[in-house]
Design a protein around this nucleic acid. Structure first.
Lengths: 239, 239
DNA sequence: ATACATATAGTGATCTAATCACTTTATGTT
DNA sequence: AACATAAAGTGATTAGATCACTATATGTAT
């Protein structure tokens, strides 16, 4: 239960301690038993007994796992496998509100990653993926016409659906992570943009190109869309 | 101390509980006081008293933070700010060994992201960044000529240095995360490659182009390099 | 038989208190 | 000044208790 420290580890190596080893052991158990998100694990007390540790020690381990979204402890109910258990790339949930400079970096990172994703989506043209994009686009259209303030959330999901439609799990997780980190700023970005209809039309244009399988055009349209967003943010945030 | 649940949260929303709120509060304290990685926090006991909770409760919160690399608990010494405290995108440290299919997805994600990074690096030509690349390249050359088995680790770092030289923090974190997830597989990939010298020459070629500021050529060279790697991995892993 | 209310059992959440293990600092000796 | 030892501080883990919430079982009314 004391595996060699991984020298290639990102950040400082974790010192050996029971809670760390237990977190790894519980994660390994989840994977070995092919448990899925939502599946229930044994109770904290039973897990503690199984691994022959005290309950608070197992609790510390589970809190580690919970921080990654690998498990969920539900008060009065039990311990469940979390949605992120098989996720590779995660956003830091405790990252503070991004500075203006970092907001621009986040957008520029998306500027590099999302156009190839749009191209991938136009290449694979996955029916479910395209269906999701179209459904999200309809929801966005409803928000625009009804001046629903939830538009910013829908726009977030729109970018996520494109990433998923690209068919590469890693890229989808990356975009989801980036979008998560500056999610609240999206509301401000939409406000800075000042033209929800134009933003929506750009989203629609991208969707049409992806659905039509026009790979290069989809890529270019996404580039242009994100360039527009970055430009607006740069101008408005430099005042 | 019970902020509204973030509806845009990636994965399932965290239920309110003390340990979760405390983790957030400690993270916010670290950011508010501009503490840096390696800085020491108050002891667990003092933190517990400050936030008026029991020690085990504070410990659970700190384990959450530790899982993200936001703090480090050093036995007998104290609580320190961790290296990931200001990191946005993280690898899941408990992710199991990638399947072959996922390994290919990881490489393909890099295929989309790293060429634009190489182009960025060739654009900004940051002296420190280029110096790191060259130093890592020298180390790789030494490993190749001395048949040092650490070559795979050095190659990992080579890609990281390019990502950092690109000047975009988010992209660097993304690459670091992706590289981390399939780090151990890099050893196998290098073995599958079967030609360390050629791999090294490709790395050197990319470096020269970046240093020379040849943006398009750097991009293309990185594309070609990763295409080669993916092709080899596809062929060898399909048998 | 069905629907609703209440009680019980199970389970997580937090606390108090103790002991052990490690690190850092202080003190003593050469 | 260098080294050794002791003491203090701190994290690590355990044991045990109480409280809060959820799920299940049981009872009552229609």
């Amino acid at each position: 239960m004391y595996p060699a420290s991984a020298a290639h580890e990102s950040g400082q190596p974790q010192r050996r301690n029971l809670s760390n080893d237990l977190a790894s052991a519980v994660a390994a158990m989840i994977h070995r038993e092919s448990l899925q998100p939502g599946d229930q694990l044994d109770s904290v007390k039973v897990l503690a007994a199984r691994f022959q540790v005290a309950v608070p020690t197992m609790r510390e381990a589970l809190r580690r796992l919970e921080a990654m979204g690998g498990v969920t402890l539900r008060h009065g109910s039990g311990v469940y496998v979390g949605e992120n258990v098989r996720r590779m790339v995660l956003p830091n949930p405790l990252y503070p509100k991004p500075t203006r400079g970092m907001l621009v970096e986040l957008l520029e990172a998306r500027r590099q990653i999302e156009p190839p994703i749009a191209a991938l989506a136009a290449t694979v043209r996955d029916p479910d993926g395209m269906e999701s994009m179209i459904a999200t686009l309809s929801e966005a259209e409803r928000c625009v016409s009804e001046a629903d303030e939830q538009l910013w959330l829908v726009n977030l999901n729109f970018h996520r659906t494109i990433a998923v439609a690209g068919g590469n799990t890693v890229l989808a997780e990356v975009i989801d992570s980036i979008v998560f980190i500056h999610a609240e700023e999206q509301l401000e970005i939409l406000r800075l943009h000042g033209d929800e209809r134009r933003d929506f039309e750009e989203h629609r244009h991208i969707t049409e190109l992806i659905v039509a399988g026009d790979v290069q055009a989809a890529r270019s349209a996404m580039e242009e869309h994100l360039d527009n967003v970055i430009q607006i943010v740069r101008e408005r945030l430099s005042g």
